[in-house]
Write a protein that binds this DNA or RNA. Structure first.
Lengths: 251, 251
DNA sequence: GCTACACCCTCACGTTACGTGAGCGTCAAG
DNA sequence: CTTGACGCTCACGTAACGTGAGGGTGTAGC
């Protein structure tokens, strides 16, 4: 019986890691290969399997220490680890998005020559804004008219503008919340009025928002967790209520 | 003239950092305070200002080394740094999202008792799938019917199912690409036929997808960069074409 | 058999942004 | 003058390797 044996270099190329990494995993006992007479590391099938599992969990962001206690464990133990890790990653993602948001604002103020101080930055920080994904969007649909318009307008706003903008949004959200708490259905005249204010707001600050585009936005409010989350910060269920109201108003 | 002077502890509490952090910034010359006769660190207004700026950039994920060369620089130099940093963060965010995706799959296979090996995981990995944001979505709109349906169905799929699913999607995307490359307009009968196949696919694998819901999805394909990106992986401009085709078919 | 040359080995220090004591001085209150 | 809170300076530890230094091993070609 011939067993496939590989040397460090082979494994490194196969698994797309450096030799040092394999040395390290050997050192900490994570993936310990056999040795040849001359002391060369020899990787057999079991070691390769183990390495692949290790790399899989590493890819998911687990620490090597955690991986040590995970690999070889039964399914149920791994599952809870996965779930914990997911929460962690979710938090990281959110943090990164907030950072992106903050950077956009910083860039914006730099270009408009305004200077926000630390508190002013915090003031606007953490709030939702379509400008959040500007650069990302620019690469993908940078030639859409609505998008161009939005960039052109937003690029000229001063800090005061943004604060006014924010105040307006807060007011609209508050209006929706009031209706919702009062038990007034989304498909009512009162809701329709706020819907219209919302659409006007977008048209004023970002781009011409037709009823059709508005309807599309409304769908995204519940379909895209990013939107849902940001809106629901202002009140539980707000995104769903707004979505319904916008849908009702446009039909 | 009385100048406000603060000691390390004061500053640490104010800025919400540890004393060690301030020591460190002093050591590397990032924020160097004055000293009292007895050697105590004394922070004046200029140092506090500088510290705030440092912390701001730290919040944005810059390394201390980079911050060293950024603080105190004129606006234009900072802007390019901000833009570079933004790209970096964007990449990180994408990576995290891919990790979330992979974790979801791993959890899924663990719970359904299937075991995917490394290659099988990679095989499905990196492809777009509505299940991507399941947990996230669960918290937000876990009681939507379409969502419940989707979870119920997807939770029972085996690895083979996912691969078939993936093959089907690839085929549909390829069909759209062919039409697009052939210069056939999105608002044509041929495109409409593929649109219908797409809708049927979603209805079959995830949830009952009405024409209305499908129209909403189509809008998201260009409105949400995450969707756009994932779809455009299969071909530049595919998302936009699909979006147009779906819009044309539903009007 | 000898020489390249590619490949392997083991130290062991460097990296980032601090955390965490150890051992010891300083200051204001009682 | 003690006491406790606070400050100081080393200096090693952390995570996951990167990066040489200095020195064996294996084999292909002459």
């Amino acid at each position: 019986m011939i067993t496939k044996t590989l040397t460090v270099g082979d494994v490194a190329r196969l698994a797309n890691v450096t030799i040092r990494t394999l040395h390290h995993y050997d050192e900490i006992g994570l993936v310990v290969p056999e040795r040849s007479d001359s002391g060369y590391r020899i990787y057999g099938v079991p070691q390769i399997d183990r390495l692949q599992e290790v790399l899989f969990f590493r890819e998911l962001g687990f620490s090597l220490k955690d991986i040590t206690s995970i690999v070889g464990e039964p399914t149920y133990a791994r599952e809870s680890a996965l779930i914990r890790q997911r929460k962690l990653l979710e938090a990281k993602t959110e943090r990164l998005m907030a950072m992106l948001d903050a950077i956009d604002r910083a860039i914006e103020t730099d270009t408009t020559g305004e200077i926000m101080n630390y508190e002013e930055k915090l003031e606007v920080f953490g709030d939702f804004d379509p400008a959040e994904y500007e650069d990302e969007a620019k690469e993908r649909w940078g030639d859409s008219d609505a998008y161009k318009q939005s960039v052109k307008r937003t690029s000229q706003y001063t800090k005061d503008d943004w604060l006014r903008n924010k105040a307006e949004v807060s007011e609209i959200y508050a209006a929706f919340m009031n209706l919702m708490r009062a038990g007034i259905p989304p498909a009512s005249d009162q809701a329709a009025e706020v819907v219209e204010r919302h659409r006007a707001h977008i048209s004023h600050w970002y781009y011409d928002c037709s009823k059709e585009i508005h309807a599309g936005l409304g769908q995204m409010y519940v379909a895209d967790p990013r939107f849902t989350k940001n809106i629901d910060k202002h009140g539980e269920g707000l995104a769903a209520y707004m979505s319904d109201a916008i849908a009702a108003a446009s039909s």
